[in-house]
Design a protein around this nucleic acid. Structure first.
Lengths: 214, 214
DNA sequence: CACGAAGCGGAGCGCGCGCTCCGCTTCTGG
DNA sequence: CCAGAAGCGGAGCGCGCGCTCCGCTTCGTG
């Protein structure tokens, strides 16, 4: 995987090396400090000046896209693998667990998935994910293991909640989120179901809720 | 309730009126925009200058304390009332529900409860709350309704998670958080219990997790 | 090897934040 | 009623952020 994008002539050798160092530094910074890691910090870690960084990535958002492209693809892959499991409950559960491991490894991931609309790459990933999640849910309900009143639209809500736990505890007890997920999963089994006091979010509501930072 | 604090001579009449308007404006601003509402915005809403505001409240934190004192007391009261219920499960549940209603009504509350250490009033409220929560939990476990492996230290985690849902949805579907709480509560009933993959947080870990903003 | 295109560094801008400073205004007790 | 204590407004400071600009350096091709 030699250069940036396919368009435009290849970069000069030194420029390409700098670009790689910038992406690596950004990956590390975003993983450690979340998406709010400062551009200046990233440039310093990469050993380049601000000008260099901004010629390659005209806005911070481009940098974010470059860094998280792989991770987003990985989430999709995790969902696809989960669909291949014979036991639908195990698949559903493994999708959640593996997706949260990715969150725990990279503090910036939750910001990319939730924050501010028009993050093109993240939007694309969400679109690819949506039908996979629907099938994971419906399959587990058909097998009678997942409660019938659970909705695919509840999955993003699970992400909000567990990501919050990871945010609070990842440096203190990195696996603690598994406990909270345990409580929730116990509440999602068909046998545990009790009538719910509220309907799931509609797709439109979810879209609105996923891009808040007024 | 005439003046600011008992200490020092009473304020001049106009000054006291301004103080009241500042607190009211701050309450509205924090409720609507969270604790990050700007001081300038608060001064504008109150119709006073920055100088006026800062004479009365030498730092934003003092303003926060003044505004949230009542709400914190209310949470404690809610816990005490919940302890008076005969059915321990109903008490536990009603404590959570009423505390989350307060969160939903005031976007700033979660910031006050979680953010940055040494928020004196909030710390005091946490201390008063801790034994009440312990009794709520142990009582419900003794009655056999709450799963035995739930720990009082898991209650703050519930607050993190449901507060996150409220943050995302309060303007879109103000009661939606009740759905997520429903899933979780179903997982907390004794009958739903399945072995958990992680121990609860220790008190020290909770303290460290409750003051993050690096 | 020389020279133009490409790349580079980092000082500095604009913004919004919490907060300060100080010359002017208003209340109130004797 | 009037001095002076108390209160007041808002321009402006320092900070950290994302981002820009431009004079200098380096690459690599003819």
């Amino acid at each position: 995987m030699p250069a940036s994008t396919i368009t435009s002539r290849p970069l000069r050798r030194d420029a390409q090396a700098n670009r790689d160092r910038i992406v690596a530094a950004a990956r590390a910074a975003f993983a450690a400090n979340g998406i709010d890691a400062s551009v200046e910090d990233i440039a310093r870690r990469a050993g380049v000046g601000m000008g260099t960084l901004y010629r390659r990535f005209p806005a911070k958002e481009h940098l974010v896209d470059a860094v998280f492209e792989d991770t987003l693809a990985e989430i999709v892959a995790v969902a696809e693998e989960a669909l291949a499991a014979e036991d639908a409950w195990a698949g559903f559960r493994s999708f959640l667990e593996r997706a949260f491991v990715l969150h725990a490894e990279n503090r910036g991931l939750k910001d990319v998935l939730n924050r501010s609309p028009r993050r093109a790459k993240a939007e694309a990933a969400r679109m690819r994910l949506r039908p996979l999640i629907r099938r994971l849910v419906e399959r587990a309900q058909a097998q009678g293991s997942l409660r019938a009143d659970f909705s695919p639209a509840d999955v993003p809500v699970l992400f909000w909640t567990i990501a919050r736990v990871i945010e609070a505890t990842s440096e203190i007890a990195p696996d603690f989120w598994r406990r909270q997920l345990g409580f929730v999963l116990d509440g999602l089994r068909a046998g545990a179901a009790t009538p719910l006091p509220h309907a799931p979010l509609t797709t439109a509501q979810l879209d609105r809720a996923s891009g808040r930072r007024p």
